[in-house]
Design a protein around this nucleic acid. Structure first.
Lengths: 108, 108
DNA sequence: GACATACGCAACCGTTTGGTTGCATACTTT
DNA sequence: AAAGTATGCAACCAAACGGTTGCGTATGTC
């Protein structure tokens, strides 16, 4: 089953997990302690995040540390880029409008 | 029913619709022509996009033009900001490492 | 070796999702 | 006024989703 990064971040719990492990890798149990849900539910979310490579596992003894693959987040940024261009262009146009208004005012 | 912008962009068809109307407003019929699906399915997607205010309607006679609310996209950008900080920090640290390697090389 | 702990996996369940079909409504054209 | 066009809405359906429970397995501790 092919997973999509956009589908991965669609769920609020998954976004919270991402935020939680962004700075330091954590085990499923440690993650689950931060939510009002079972370890298994968290495990399922981690599986989805792993499937689309947003998260990587590091086995250490009987514990598995999950760590955010921050580079994967850049994919969202790249997708957003096309729209960023649009809103920045709009902003520049607004600047132009303001400039012309000032010129018009100066001429009066 | 409260909708989430992240849920809205989770569906590939909806992302395609967003891309399609990004530059110019379009009617449901015109949008549907670009997909292998029915007009009603597109209408449902548009309803979801409208619910979370990613899209606005403009009635013109019997036609309804849907236009992208580009400012709403900034919300994704804002969410991404915290992670952008992380990967930029990582990149700077990489720069530091490279600099130190060069220094070490110069000392040999 | 016996027991506890950390974890993944499979089965199951109610809800949501994305889609279709059919129909009602409003505007346009003749 | 009648016919055609653009659209939204409701009902329905199969598939996916998010969650729980139960169980098997591997590692750590006594």
């Amino acid at each position: 089953m092919k997973r999509d990064i956009f589908q991965a971040i669609a769920d609020p719990t998954r976004r919270a997990i991402i935020a939680l492990i962004a700075l330091q890798a954590m085990t499923p149990n440690a993650i689950a302690e931060n939510f009002h849900t079972t370890r298994q539910a968290v495990s399922k979310h981690l599986r989805i995040l792993t499937e689309c490579e947003l998260v990587h596992q590091e086995q250490r003894g009987r514990e598995i540390y999950y760590r955010l693959e921050i580079d994967k987040m850049k994919e969202i940024d790249e997708w957003l880029e096309q729209y960023r261009k649009i809103w920045e262009t709009r902003f520049e146009q607004l600047g132009e409008v303001l400039k012309e208004m000032k010129n018009a005012e100066a001429r009066t």
